[in-house]
Design a protein around this nucleic acid. Structure first.
Lengths: 176, 176
DNA sequence: ACCTGAACACCGTTCAAGT
DNA sequence: ACCTGAACACCGTTCAAGT
């Protein structure tokens, strides 16, 4: 599920188990000690495979993002949104891993190409791709943390309804 | 600097000192123990003023955001961007505090009103305001963590140049 | 009303040493 | 090559008790 597909190995076991723990308990509970515990090893053993926790989380984020196959700009943005929505706390994970340079979002480059193919010039394609990715990440981040906030009963009663995802995306990708 | 302006009080001292520590050492170093230490008090004393760390950070975030006075949509977006760029790690602070419901971004509502005043209908105004805020937060987040990453020498050499802020904003607010 | 002191249950990371 | 065991230097939070 992670690399370009090959002999699994201990490193991929670690990423797989981290993903399970993420789904089961969320990002705040995802500690090195818990990952190690779930694998029956010592926390220190993880440091043979990864230099630090951030790098390990980057590998998990890359797994969440996968290899998108969609080809139109809107389809790529929706693919990204759906992958993020599909896993617990994925927006926060990906957002911080990508900002820190520990994972790459393949949708970015694909979106840029798709915009070029649709006839946009270089600057316009780059702006649209970057805005679409940042908007999507932000939108899902907000949605996921909103849902955890109200699950905790801390439903701030005056919080305004977020605008629908598609409306914002349309503004960004509208001119194709 | 924080509330609507009144008798300071211990609570505002805490927020002010937290802001100084944020500027001086960054968000990862901003612990309850350090804030308390800088005030010459025990960490547990902070819990008389705030129920938990997230709430305290929410108050700090509100202080960073302030009370914007700009009135056009673009001016409001730029005001938000500049406030975030003006303080260390501010984008991450505000992004997570606002997503968790511990602070409000006043620019959101003002942007919506400004879009309405510029002739947009309700749905369009809401979409533009939300997209502009999410885009701005994401753009600055990326910029700030990029700069910390390369300060640490971890300058990922293949990281693509981010598109200029104004280009993306133009896509979102272009139709006024 | 506001704070101390001590404790609880954790963290990420390093490093010598084992196999 | 891969992992253990123990340690270091921290965390956020709770709570009885003080003034």
């Amino acid at each position: 599920m992670s690399g370009t597909g090959a002999k699994a190995g201990r490193r991929d076991d670690i990423v797989a188990v981290a993903l399970e723990l993420l789904d089961a308990h969320g990002l705040p509970e995802l500690s090195m000690r818990r990952i190690a515990g779930a694998l029956g090893m010592q926390p220190s053993a993880l440091y043979w495979h990864f230099p630090d926790k951030q790098t390990l989380l980057g590998a998990v984020a890359a797994d969440v993002l996968g290899a998108p196959e969609a080809s139109g700009p809107e389809a790529l943005a929706l693919d990204l949104r759906d992958r993020l929505l599909g896993r617990r706390d994925a927006a926060e994970l990906v957002s911080s891993a990508s900002a820190l340079g520990h994972c790459r979002i393949p949708h970015s480059e694909l979106l840029r190409s798709a915009a070029l193919a649709a006839g946009a010039d270089d600057a316009r394609a780059a702006a649209a791709a970057s805005a679409a990715v940042l908007y999507t990440l932000g939108w899902v981040l907000h949605a996921q943390q909103r849902s955890v906030a109200e699950a905790l009963g801390a439903a701030s009663p005056d919080a305004p309804e977020p605008a629908p995802y598609a409306d914002g995306l349309e503004l960004i990708l509208g001119g194709l």
